[in-house]
Amino acid sequence: MQLYPLKLVTVVGESVIMEDIAERGIKLGASGYTLVDVTGHGARSTRNVSMSGGARTQKIEFVVSGEVAVDILSYVSHQYFEHYACIAWLSDVSVVRGDQYVKPGGR
């Protein structure tokens, strides 16, 4: 079985910013994403909109090439780090059917 070396971008933050991050990730070259509700506590938890009416903490993950991963992380850090409860990290992953995670003609 062949495994493809790719990057996993993970962003955990306020749900109000996740739709934008998902859209931007796709625009920057990701072929998809996974979005889940999470709970936890962080340095800026008190800034988070944790009302039961809707907003909550979410985690979004993209499996992408190294270049796209850097672009997504740059966007997230530039757009959201200053004022939102949000963290992001990059991991190396080995993926089955890795060709699915790179758009045709993409990076």
Binding site: E14, V16, I17, V49, M51, G53, G54, A55, Y84
Partner: peptide
Amino acid sequence: SYIAAPPAVRL
């Protein structure tokens, strides 16, 4: 308001 306003203000 505590349902409609918070996300709008946050954004």
